[in-house]
């Protein structure tokens, strides 16, 4: 305790800490807007801000490879997939008043209670722990690649099989609905029919 306080002062934060706090505030605010906005497309766009802010936090933590992977996969493809999903399910462009369900207040109570518990426990546990960001970066591409291909080869290969299975599964799930479109056409609402036609295109 005294050692930590002697080495690092609470009242003299470093520039990295200040940058981390500011970006963290922006990230948390964007996440709050993402889960509370009533415009569905805006939620996806605020999610871009959240994920980009997290990429900056990874950079500040010297994990640069993770940061660029985050930008490539999350901001580049996951958000685009989510936007496609919103548009294929004909999400309304303007404000949709029924974006939140009726148990919003119960959800808010659960979230606030768990946030209080988690923050209390984490602050209490790691109050005197400091990350040493000086010296060689802990997450350059070289370091990450070496550890990945020396110690984590088998999970890496298993993950490629999982990705292949997910790819095939997504294709099968999408094609099955199209193949059944002719048989179940009369059972469907006209809105769903138009969406199926859009999906077929």
């Amino acid at each position: 305790m005294t050692l930590a306080a002697a080495q690092h002062g609470f009242l003299s934060p470093t520039g990295v800490e200040i940058a981390f706090l500011l970006v963290g505030l922006a990230t948390f605010g964007a996440a709050l807007v993402t889960v509370t906005t009533r415009q569905l497309v805006h939620a996806a766009l605020w999610l871009v801000v959240t994920l980009g802010g997290l990429a900056v936090e990874y950079l500040l933590l010297t994990a640069e490879f993770i940061a660029w992977v985050q930008v490539l996969i999350y901001v580049g493809s996951v958000v685009v997939l989510l936007l496609f999903g919103l548009m294929l399910t004909r999400a309304p462009i303007g404000r949709s008043p029924d974006a939140d369900s009726g148990n919003r207040w119960a959800a808010l109570a659960v979230a606030v209670a768990s946030a209080a518990a988690l923050v209390w426990v984490v602050v209490d546990a790691f109050r005197t722990t400091w990350i040493d960001l000086d010296g060689a970066a802990a997450g350059t591409t070289k370091v990450t690649g070496e550890s990945l291909f020396q110690n984590w080869v088998l999970p890496f290969e298993a993950l490629s099989v999982l990705l292949l299975a997910a790819l095939v599964g997504a294709i099968v799930l999408s094609r099955k609905a199209k193949a059944d479109a002719a048989t179940a056409a009369q059972a469907r609402e006209p809105r769903g029919e138009q969406a199926a036609e859009e999906g077929a295109r």
Partner: peptide, 14 residues
């Protein structure tokens, strides 16, 4: 922790 609880609220309330 805060981001996790934000996501938890979204899962429960959306």
């Amino acid at each position: 922790a805060l981001l996790f609880c934000t996501g938890l609220y979204g899962v429960l309330a959306r």
